[in-house]
Amino acid sequence: MLYRDDYFEVWVDPARSLVRLARTERAFESIDHARASYASLAIALATVERRSHGVLLDLRAARPRSEPEFERFASESSATLLRPFRSVSVLVKSAVGRLQVQRIEKERGTAVFTVFTDESEALAHATR
Rank of each mutant, 00 (worst) to 15 (best):
S75G: 08
P64C: 11
V112S: 04
R83V: 10
A36V: 13
L82C: 06
K106S: 11
R50D: 00
P84C: 08
A42I: 12
A34S: 07
S52W: 14
E25P: 01
A34R: 03
K106L: 10
S77E: 11
A42L: 09
T80E: 15
A44I: 09
D118P: 11
A27F: 02
R35K: 08
A61T: 04
S40W: 14
A111K: 14
T114L: 05
D6P: 08
A95H: 13
L59R: 06
S77G: 08
L41Q: 03
F113N: 03
R26S: 02
R108I: 12
G97P: 00
L123W: 02
R4N: 03
A122V: 01
D5C: 05
R98Q: 14
A111P: 12
T24V: 09
E9L: 08
Y3R: 02
S37A: 12
A36H: 11
D5K: 05
E69G: 06
R50K: 10
W11M: 09
V92G: 00
E121A: 11
R51V: 14
D118Y: 13
L91T: 05
S37W: 00
E49D: 15
A42H: 11
R63T: 15
E69W: 07
F73K: 04
L2M: 12
D13Y: 12
R103V: 11
T114D: 05
W11K: 07
E69S: 08
F28R: 03
V55H: 04
E9T: 12
W11P: 00
A126K: 03
P84H: 08
L21R: 01
L21H: 01
L41K: 02
D58I: 11
F85H: 04
R72C: 08
T114V: 07
L45R: 02
R23W: 03
A27Y: 03
T117K: 13
R65V: 15
V55G: 00
R86S: 08
P84K: 03
E29L: 06
R4M: 05
R103C: 10
T127D: 01
A111I: 13
Y7A: 00
V55A: 02
E67C: 11
I104G: 02
R26K: 12
R23G: 00
P68W: 13
E119A: 09
S30C: 06
S66Q: 15
R72P: 09
F73A: 00
A61Q: 08
T127S: 04
A95I: 14
S66N: 15
L21K: 02
R16S: 13
T80K: 11
A74T: 09
S87A: 12
S37L: 03
V96C: 10
S77H: 13
